[in-house]
Design a protein around this nucleic acid. Sequence first.
DNA 1: TATTATAATGACTTAATAGTCATAATTCAA
DNA 2: TTGAATTATGACTATTAAGTCATTATAATA
Lengths: 211, 211
Amino acid sequence: MENVDKNPDKHDLILSAARSLIGEYGFSALTMDKVAAKAGIAKGTIYLYFKDKNELIESALKRGFERLFERIEKRVEKEASSLEKLGALIHENLTYINENRFFFKSIFLDEINIVFLKKKSVESFNLRRKKYASFVSEIIKRGINSGEFRKDINPDRMGYLLIALIKTDAIYNFMNKNQDLSPEMIKSESSDMLDFFVKGISAQYKHDVRI
Amino acid sequence: MENVDKNPDKHDLILSAARSLIGEYGFSALTMDKVAAKAGIAKGTIYLYFKDKNELIESALKRGFERLFERIEKRVEKEASSLEKLGALIHENLTYINENRFFFKSIFLDEINIVFLKKKSVESFNLRRKKYASFVSEIIKRGINSGEFRKDINPDRMGYLLIALIKTDAIYNFMNKNQDLSPEMIKSESSDMLDFFVKGISAQYKHDVRI
DNA sequence: TATTATAATGACTTAATAGTCATAATTCAA
DNA sequence: TTGAATTATGACTATTAAGTCATTATAATA
């Protein structure tokens, strides 16, 4: 029964303590005692704002993904062509991941640190992914109709694949680079990824399409 | 100190009980009591064959990935061109995942069920991934040198990406199809994926390259 | 200020489960 | 066949951490 009304400041305080601990040590190391200590409050207090640990973790995740999604939607609708929309989406997503790199590092890296306690969380995690994937696949569908993209691809599957590409790229960066990425690096990375997604790795085509 | 000499049959019995439980309920639900019950032995016996739970989980994973890797290596070296090698790799990997679908479902699906207890396991998981990725990137490098693939791609990154594609495709199938995939479906799926990896989604190129 | 309502506390209870070890069963070797 | 060595057992211990709740502190109100 996530009670935000009571005291929104404390609610946020707890959430950000949790987020910060997740970013530092990962999900599996998150304990209510640590959250309480980090937030400088008593453990019991957490339960005034969150029903249980599961709800706390879910809230932390939910907020992160909602913000990401809002930003991407806002950014993407500015673009006209499907190609440009995809480019904007990739760029915005990589930027957001970089801004919240510790948090996402824990979520993504090695797919190891996430421990969900309840089926319900797994489901809502799936729903978010599905929502994002179908957002992407809508863009691709429009691109197919407009003649920008091939007609013989499965847009739903391509939606999932693009998301996987973005994530994998982030993981690759986490593993191979220690510092934050500069805006320029993110830009070049985004356009590389779009380039690959659109044109593949074959040398059999001329690669001079403007992106 | 994984003692296999003692009694290889029992060692295997325990491992396959663990694998089967992981496939059924996922990593997070694996307890030593359940493994013992499933194997029809006492809990203490497990500790005669595996140092701790961590080693048991690691062994289960390790064996699965080693078999996969061996099969792929054997299959890939039969092919001449880099393109054909990649095609063989994708096909062999999808086939193996399908053969061990319950196990991989738990490992892959939603990236949620893996709980590692020790840093060491995370590291060895990374090593395996790295080994596989560099195997793929070697193929790509040769393809670049032979002129099959573009010179302006990062082969290491492409290695990771291809592995992510395969995995994502498997997840997509787990979510959208209930039964096993037929050999024909795997074949068509593999060639679709290779096609995308090589040519991208753009409609700007003719898509008639023989794969 | 006194009274009530709300919020916060943290010691305690409870549950889950990894790992142990004294004891028992089985196998082996002389 | 019998004593030693090996293997197996499962009740027990220890640990960790989630969640509770009687008590205390603070804020609101009259």
